[in-house]
């Protein structure tokens, strides 16, 4: 069983790093993972995408064919990758950064939540917390461990707080679905 996750946005948002953290968490959980990326020559501002495949068995094709989960953190990324989403794709966007969000299932204020924590750059950690809670693909303990290893040492605490915030928000969504008796909300 293979799970495909696509995270897209612009350079500087920690898109590639988010994929790395997720992939490494899967390895810590004893699964297989492949993370690939696509980015332009600019280090900031260009389009960035991170594909993560997670599986209990060997992974042959290393890229996303049809994402189970698509996270778009910019309008251009959303516009570009929504067409690749299928019926089974859960589409999550940043509520503020993707103003025109028709086709998204969930619009979450990742960046705003990060700003409230003091630093907008931890929006990717908020997002990771959220998708960990809603997808259940990796354990939150593995995610916390992976996050701690991959962010600059001085920012570990802030990133873990951001992750926890995102995780709680995700959990609320899951609980709300469970109450309604389905996961199609």
């Amino acid at each position: 069983m293979r799970t495909e996750i696509q995270i897209a946005g612009f350079g500087g948002q920690g898109i590639v790093l988010a994929g790395v953290i997720l992939g490494e968490a899967a390895i810590l959980d004893g699964q297989n993972a492949v993370q690939t990326q696509s980015y332009g020559p600019e280090s900031r501002g260009g389009a960035a995408r991170s594909d993560i495949i997670i599986s209990r068995t060997e992974i042959d094709y290393p890229k996303v064919l049809q994402a189970d989960l698509l996270v778009a953190l910019s309008q251009p990324a959303f516009d570009k990758y929504l067409s690749g989403a299928g019926e089974g794709t859960l589409v999550i966007v940043d509520r503020e950064l993707v103003p025109s969000q028709k086709g998204a299932h969930l619009a979450i204020s990742f960046s705003l939540m990060a700003e409230n924590l003091g630093r907008r750059v931890v929006a990717n950690s908020v997002m990771l917390g959220f998708i960990t809670a809603v997808s259940g693909i990796v354990s939150s303990s593995a995610m916390e461990q992976s996050l701690s290893r991959n962010v600059p040492p001085k920012t570990v605490e802030l990133n873990l707080r951001a992750f926890a915030e995102g995780w709680s928000a995700g959990k609320e969504h899951v609980d709300a679905w469970t109450c309604r008796g389905g996961a199609n909300g």
């Binding site: 790395v20 490494e24 390895i27 297989n32 993972a33 492949v34 690939t36």
Partner: peptide
Amino acid sequence: GEVGHMREK
């Protein structure tokens, strides 16, 4: 470039 930048176990 794909294998070089790809991450795996």
